[in-house]
């Protein structure tokens, strides 16, 4: 088997805050193979964005990796120099952020912003880079792409801005694209368009894609594999088809039941998971899902379940709930 493109092993991330140390990730392990689409699913606050940002080395001054490693194309990113990580960012790993409204610089033209990674990593002149930016904007189906190179972000709608972000991410044809809730801030009608566009373009480039979402419903159509996160840990991971057919963690089952379906009885209540997502600065003992788990046993309050392979390529972290 080929080595995975990205391999996160046992990653822990801590933030220093005014209220003390917060452990945002606790032993997260993940793999992304070449050309594969992985979805990371979980409620807000489960550590999805932190996972993505630690891959890029953008945790900021208050955050840091306190354990584990991230390997990209066989190289450790955690131990790499700042300069080396900077060379990888935007070049081999690109990221698309959740907020298209605030993720583009309001005082720079779209052309310049899309051209910037090419200018930075390909050593091209501005003229050539902006020329390529024009082609990229065409690629993401922005109408009148060439004429819009000189426009500013406020002249674009949210959906169009997210297309611009995609163009920017694709600029250097990266091997890995991480899209952090790319459609959460958008109208439902444009969500599917943006995701299909992203999926098609990465498939053409044979790049790997990580889609972060809190909506399991989104995942089915686009992802090969799914990782479910809860309280800064991975609680279940499997191929998308397997996970839908055979969810094994009570949290995954809960998420699954909360997806609205077309076949549901009209007027039927959606099943939601009772209770609140955990506060990372004050996690419950043992399995952090136990206060919300309908199957919790005494053991769940005492020790943390490990991620174990219970079917071929199907992992979960749970003591004994049978699905």
């Amino acid at each position: 088997m080929m080595d995975p493109l990205l391999s996160i092993s046992n990653l822990s991330v801590n933030f220093k805050t005014e209220r003390g140390n917060v452990q945002a990730l606790d032993g997260v392990s993940l793999e992304v193979n070449e050309g594969e689409t992985l979805a990371i699913v979980g409620e807000s606050g489960s550590g999805k964005s932190v996972t993505a940002l630690s891959v890029l080395g953008l945790l900021g001054d208050s955050g840091g990796v306190s354990g584990g490693d991230i390997e990209f194309a066989g190289e450790s990113l955690v131990n790499a120099s700042d300069e080396h990580r900077r060379e990888i960012r935007g070049n081999q790993i690109a990221m698309i952020f959740q907020e298209p409204m605030s993720s583009l610089n309001p005082v720079l033209t779209i052309g310049k912003q899309v051209a910037e990674p090419i200018w930075q990593h390909r050593n091209k002149s501005w003229k050539d880079a902006i020329c390529e930016a024009g082609k990229l904007l065409e690629l993401v189906s922005i109408p009148d792409a060439q004429e819009r190179l000189g426009d500013y972000p406020h002249q674009f709608s949210g959906g169009m801005r997210q297309r611009v972000m995609i163009a920017m991410a694709l600029a250097c044809q990266p091997k890995l694209i991480i899209a952090d809730e790319p459609t959460t801030a958008l109208d439902v009608t444009v969500q599917a368009q943006i995701l299909s566009l992203l999926k098609n373009l990465t498939t053409e480039l044979n790049s790997s894609l990580v889609i972060i979402t809190h909506d399991l419903g989104v995942v089915a159509r686009y992802a090969n594999r799914v990782a479910v996160m809860y309280g800064g840990r991975i609680v279940e991971t499997a191929s998308a088809a397997e996970l839908y057919r055979n969810p094994q963690h009570p949290y995954t089952v809960g998420l699954m039941n909360s997806i609205p379906t077309l076949h549901g009885k009209p007027g039927a209540r959606l099943n939601t998971i009772i209770g609140q997502p955990p506060d990372l600065s004050n996690l419950p003992s043992g399995c952090s899902f136990h206060p919300r788990c309908p199957f919790a046993k005494p053991q769940c309050m005492q020790s943390k379940p490990k991620l174990e392979e219970i079917f071929p390529n199907h992992f979960r972290a749970c003591f004994g709930y049978e699905g």
């Binding site: 990221m95 005082v107 910037e116």
Partner: peptide
């Protein structure tokens, strides 16, 4: 603290370019 500064860093720009081109004008 703005998101677009994070975007600029995610592109792999050098820190002085992030400051001068992306932050200073704003």
């Amino acid at each position: 603290r703005q998101d677009y500064i994070r975007t600029a860093r995610a592109k792999g720009l050098k820190e002085n370019i992030v400051i001068v081109r992306h932050a200073l004008r704003n």
